[in-house]
Structure formats: structure tokens, C-alpha cells
Design a protein around this nucleic acid. Sequence first.
DNA 1: TAACAATTTATCGAAAAACAATAAAAATAT
DNA 2: ATATTTTTATTGTTTTTCGATAAATTGTTA
Lengths: 69, 69
Amino acid sequence: MAIRVKLDQVLLERGLSLTELSNEVGITLANLSILKTNKAKAIRFSTLNDICRVLQCQPGDILEYIEEE
Amino acid sequence: MAIRVKLDQVLLERGLSLTELSNEVGITLANLSILKTNKAKAIRFSTLNDICRVLQCQPGDILEYIEEE
DNA sequence: TAACAATTTATCGAAAAACAATAAAAATAT
DNA sequence: ATATTTTTATTGTTTTTCGATAAATTGTTA
């Protein structure tokens, strides 16, 4: 599949760790890690919403479509 | 919640109807309509991927985070 | 090196939700 | 009016999130 989760970049830019994000967002570290490492197969809008709110970013900053041949 | 699905706009820009998108993407019209009218609570990356491929766009073109006070 | 912190991986279970299929209602266009 | 498109609704199956938890891995620092 070709949807990539670019959480790393945004976290880096914001100077936040996964642990901190986890505390602020209220999603367990384990599940955030799954997201960040592209293991998730879907995402709830509520989760996306919480992440965007805390990181002050747009879905497009986190999700990327990569064309594959 | 504050994640909005902006499928309308992209469809308009591409000159595509929901019906056409449904045929090309392979998702039923009913379920695409739920997405388009902001009734969906989540989305599978496989679905997002298919939509982006057909519409030649990025997730950010379809998903928007709207801050609420 | 040893100790600690952060991240990743894994497993289990429950709750939630996607999506298909289908049909009917509503809206839009011709 | 008729046809087309879109929305809404229902049911059932399958998938997946997400929490909870714990272990393994990696990175950092004293």
C-alpha cells in the first residue's frame, strides 16, 4: 500500500517525543508506535483529530500518498 | 469532531461524479456517500489509497482538520 | 558497563467501524 | 414526468482500532 504516516517528521519539528504525544493525546504509546511505524491499516478520525490538535497540524502533514508502479 | 472530508471539492475539480468514482475505486456508492457527507468515523488506508490513486491527489486534499473552540 | 528511559513488538480481548449488498427515499437534472 | 444521481437505511460479515499489559529492543547517560 502507499499511504505513509509521517508522524516522525512532525514530532521532530515540534520537538516532541512519542511518550509526550501519548500523554497529551491520550492514546497508548503502543498504538501510537504502530501508527508511526506504518503498521496501522486504518485510522479513526477521532484519533487523527486528537493528533492534529496536539501537534497543531493538518492531516496532510501526517498522511502521504505515494504512487507505486 | 473536526476532521472534515472534502471529497466534494476534489470531485468537482476532477469533473467526476460519485458514481464514476465508485466504479473506478471499487467501493460502493453508499459507502462513498457516507464518506463524502462526513458520516464516516474512520477510514482504512487501503480506501484512502484507492481514492488518492483514482483522483490523483493527496490525503491532505481530502482530509481537513478544523480547529474548534 | 550498568542503569535508565524511550521505543518497538507482541498478544489478547472487546468494542467499534468499514464495507458489501441491497433497497428505498430524496434530490437533481433533462 | 422521467431518468439519473445521491443520500439514507438496514443487515451481516470481516476487519481493525485501541486499551491493557508485558517483554524485547534500542538509545542515552552516569
